[in-house]
Design a protein around this nucleic acid. Sequence first.
DNA 1: ATAAGATATGATATACTGTATCATGGATGC
DNA 2: GCATCCATGATACAGTATATCATATCTTAT
Lengths: 153, 153
Amino acid sequence: MSNIQTVINHAEISCKSHGAKLTNKRKQVLSGLLQSDKARSAYELVEYCREEFGETLPAMSVYRILDFLQDESLVHKLKLANKYIACSHITCDHSHGIVQFLICGNCQSVKEITVDKTSINNLRDTIKKAGFHLLSPQLEISCLCHNCKHQAV
Amino acid sequence: MSNIQTVINHAEISCKSHGAKLTNKRKQVLSGLLQSDKARSAYELVEYCREEFGETLPAMSVYRILDFLQDESLVHKLKLANKYIACSHITCDHSHGIVQFLICGNCQSVKEITVDKTSINNLRDTIKKAGFHLLSPQLEISCLCHNCKHQAV
DNA sequence: ATAAGATATGATATACTGTATCATGGATGC
DNA sequence: GCATCCATGATACAGTATATCATATCTTAT
C-alpha cells in the first residue's frame, strides 16, 4: 500500500506526461479522496480543504477540479452516491478496463474490484441481444460492507 | 404489448389486493411513466400532469406518489439518472427477482433486462470474497441504445 | 523584461433533486 | 355527524451541480 505522497507524486508525473498540471489545489482535493476509504461529496471536500489546509475553496472550483481529476483518470464519480473516490490504480502502470465498485449502502465505504472477463462478456452479450451497446462496464453495486452487515438492526 | 389502461387496471387490482389505493393522481403519475420509454424525473412528471391533465401537482406530492409507487413495485428509481421508470412487469403474475436496467447515456431511453442466474451468482461470489454483501442485484448499466450508437458523432 | 495569450481560480447567481414540517382535504367507519 | 386515517397542499430549505463573467497566475514570443 503506497502512502498518499507517493500516489500524488505518481499522479503528478502522469499528468505532466501529457502536458496537464497537477496544481496545489488539485493535489489537495485529490489527497482528500486518497485519505478516505469512503466516497466524499464535493462539499465535503470543500470542508476537508478548509480544515486541513486552511483553504477556502469555492464549491465551483472543487467541481472543476473533480472534472479535471476525472479526465485524468485519477478519480471516479459514483453516481449511485453522488460522491467521488480516488482511483485505486493510480500507481499501476497497466490499464484497468473493467472496474466495479461495491458501495456500502450504510456507511458509504467503497471497494473497487475487478470482475472476471467471462462474466463481463456474458453481460455484454446479453446487452447486445437487447439492442443496446455496453459503453463502459463500470458497475456500481449496492452492498453492505462486512462491518455494517454485522451491526445491522 | 398491453396498452396503458390495461396496465393501470392491473396495477389498481394489485394495490387493492392488500388495501392500498391507486388514486387518480397516482394513476396520472404512473401513466406519465408508462407513456415513455425514457426515464422521467419528478419535475418532468409535474410538467406532464400539468400538460396532460391540467393538474398542478406540487413537486412534493409527486415525490410522495413516486415513493408509494415504488413501495408497490410499480415503479423503479434509476439512481444513475435520478429518474423514474414504470416497472415493465406490472402485468406479469410471477415475481422478477433479478432486474437490470440498460440506460442509454445519450437519450436516456431505458430497457429492463434479466441476466442469467449464473452471472449473478458469480458476481455475488466475487463480492463476498471482497468482504461485501450484495444487497439488491439491481444493476444500472450505462449503454448506448441502437439508435444513438448509429447516430454517434 | 514585458505584453499577449492561455489556463486556473474566484465570485455570484441559479437550476435541479430531494426532504422536513405543518396544514388542509376527503374518504371511511362507528 | 363525528372521529380517524390517509392523501394532498403549501412552504421552507438542504444538497448537488452548472452557467457565466471576472480575476489571477503562468507561459511564451518578442
